[in-house]
Design a protein around this nucleic acid. Sequence first.
DNA 1: GTGGTTTCCGGGTACGGTTGCGCGGATTTT
DNA 2: AAAATCCGCGCAACCGTACCCGGAAACCAC
Lengths: 338, 338
Amino acid sequence: MLPRMGATMLDIAKDLNVSVVTVSKVLSNKGNISSATRAKVLQKAKELNYQKNWIASSLVTRRTFTIGLLLPDFTHPFFGEIAKAIAEAVRPKGFHVIISYFEEDPALERTEAESLLARQVDGLILASSQPPQDSELFHSIQKRKVPFVLIDRPMEHVRSSFVGGDDVAIGRLATEHLVRQGCRRIAHLRGPGAGIAARRQEGYRTVLEKNKLPFHQVIEAGYDDYTGHEAMRQLLYASPLPDGVFCYNDPVAIGAMQAILEAGLQIPKDIAVVGAGNVHYSNVLAVPLTTVDQGTQQIGTRAAELLLEQIDSKRAVRPKKVLITPKLVVRQSTQRTV
Amino acid sequence: MLPRMGATMLDIAKDLNVSVVTVSKVLSNKGNISSATRAKVLQKAKELNYQKNWIASSLVTRRTFTIGLLLPDFTHPFFGEIAKAIAEAVRPKGFHVIISYFEEDPALERTEAESLLARQVDGLILASSQPPQDSELFHSIQKRKVPFVLIDRPMEHVRSSFVGGDDVAIGRLATEHLVRQGCRRIAHLRGPGAGIAARRQEGYRTVLEKNKLPFHQVIEAGYDDYTGHEAMRQLLYASPLPDGVFCYNDPVAIGAMQAILEAGLQIPKDIAVVGAGNVHYSNVLAVPLTTVDQGTQQIGTRAAELLLEQIDSKRAVRPKKVLITPKLVVRQSTQRTV
DNA sequence: GTGGTTTCCGGGTACGGTTGCGCGGATTTT
DNA sequence: AAAATCCGCGCAACCGTACCCGGAAACCAC
C-alpha cells in the first residue's frame, strides 16, 4: 500500500460529524459556516496537525502555483539575476519557480516548454532562442491558454507581453558617453544576429550621426570574451586605430580589453572601452570596465508582475511591451579626463 | 465551471467500452492487457490527442517528479553551475527542479524548505546555511521521510548523504603548487567560519609542515573581492612580504591581485597568487588566475544521482559522503619558471 | 393562518489516474 | 470429472474544491 499521509479533511469531518465540504470551507474561509462549527473544525485541524494536500487541491482548481522559467543558460549571471528577481517577486503570492534551460538549442527549448506545460504550470516566462520567423512554439502555448511572458529577446510577430532592456538606448548611452569623453573614432564590436545586437548598433549609429562623427569600423563578435578578443585583434590591425570601442556586452569588452593591453596600448588613454550588462567582476578587472547596466533585476520583476496579472485575471489581457531604461555605470576604462 | 482540459482516460474508455483501469494499464505499460485491446486504446489515445494529467497522477502515486533545490544564492556562478548539473542529471528521468534560495538567511531557509515540503517534492538538495549545531530543520525533513542530500556545506551531526569539494585537498593542491613554483613565504587569505575555510587552511598547513617551511601570515577575508583586497593590503604592510598567497576562493584572489598590482608589485614575479573555484573570467583578468577547480559540475551530478537513488529505493539508504577530487588549473598568476 | 421569498448553514457529486484485490471464464493439470 | 492455473479486465479508494442543491428558519403580505 502507498504510504499514508498525515490527517486528511475526511479525518476531521468524521470526528465532528460534518462533511468534508464543510471542513474545506472553513479552512479556506469561503462560504457561510457558523462560528461554532468553524471553531470546532479549526480546533480539530490543529489537534490532528492537518496539512493540506496541495496536489489534490491543484487537481480540482487547476492551479499549481508554479511558474515555469525557461532560460538559455543560468550559469550566466545575467540570467541568474533574472531568475532571482522572478523568484522573489512571486514568492509572496505563494508561487514557486521551476527552472529549465536549453543551452541555446531551439529544439530542446520546445521539448522543455512542452514538458513544463504538461506539468500544468500556471504560467511561463521565457528568454527564447527560437528563430525569429518560427512562432510555432508560441502558438502551441497560446492554444493551451497558458499565460506567458517573453523576456530579453523579443519576438516581433508573437502576440504576447515582453520585458527587456532598451537596446537602442543602451547603444546610445554608451556611445554618447564615449563622445563626451572626447573620443572621435568610435568603433563597435557588435553581437551576432539581427535582434538585440542590431538595436544596440542602431543606438550607436544614431549618436554618431547626431554628432556628425565619421563611422568607424563595426566588427561582429560573439557572446563571449574569446570572440571579443579576436574581434579586437582585427581592429588593431587596421589604421587609424579607434580611440573608443563600444562592445556588445561585458564579456566581449573584457576580451577586447585583454587584446588592447596585449598590444601594449593603454586603457583608456589610447582606447576607451564600454561594455554592456554590468556583470559581476566588471569592477575588479585589470582596468575596471565602464558599462551600461540594463536593469536586470527590473526585467525579472516586471516580467513576474505581468505574468501574475495575466494569471489572476483569467481574461485575456492586452499584451504589454516593457523596455527597462538602462543606466550608465562609469568606471576607469573610459575615464580620460581625470 | 472550471476550464475543461483535453481528453481524459474516461473519454477513451467510454469510446471503447472498457474501463479506465484498462486504459491506464495500457498507457503505463503495466498489467496484462491483450494486444488487441492495447492497440485499440493506443489508437484512440492518439486520435483524441490524450495528454496525461500529471496532477491526478501525482495525487495517487504521491510522486511529483519534482525535486527541490535550496541554495544560498544563485547569481553566484558556482551555484548556477551546480543547479545546471542537477537539472541535467535528473531530466532524463523525468524530474524537474524547483529552485529556491534564501540569501544566507537561516530562518528564510527553514520556511522555504517547509514550503517545498508542503508541495510534496520527491526529494531535496540543499546547500544549507543552518548554524552547525542546529539540526532542527533536518530532523523535520527526516520526520517526513523525504530524501535529501546536502551539498557544499557538510553538517557533521546530520545523518544524510553529502557531496562537496574536498577542501583539504584543495588547500594542499594550491599550496603544493606554490611550493613547486619556488615560493618560500606562503601566506593564506582564509575564508570565514570553521567549516570549508578551516579545512582549506588545514590543507595549507600540512603542506607547509611537510616541506618544513616556516608559517607565514594567515589573515581572514570574507567571500568576495572587497574583503580579499582589504586582507591583502594588511599583508602588504607587514614584512617580510610573502612570495606566494593561497586565497580562499577566486573572488578573494581577484581582490588580492588588485591590491598587489596597486602596490606596484608584479604577479607572479614578486607574489604568486592561487585561488580556488575556477569561476568564469578567471582567465580574462589582468593576470589570468591560477586556481583549483573544485569539480562543481560533478558535485551537482553526484548529488542528483544520490538523491535519485534514495527516491527510487523506498528503503532507507545508507548515507554516503562524497568528496570530489579537485584539479589544479595553472594560469599566469603562478608561472614563475617560464 | 397561508403561501412565497430570502437567508443561513451545510451536503452530494464530479474531477482525475493508479493500485491492490478480486472475479469470471478459459485452459491445463491431476 | 474435479482442481489448479492463468489471462484479461474491473471495482473501489485516494483527496480537496467548485458547482449545484436542500432543508430550516425567518420574514413579508394578505
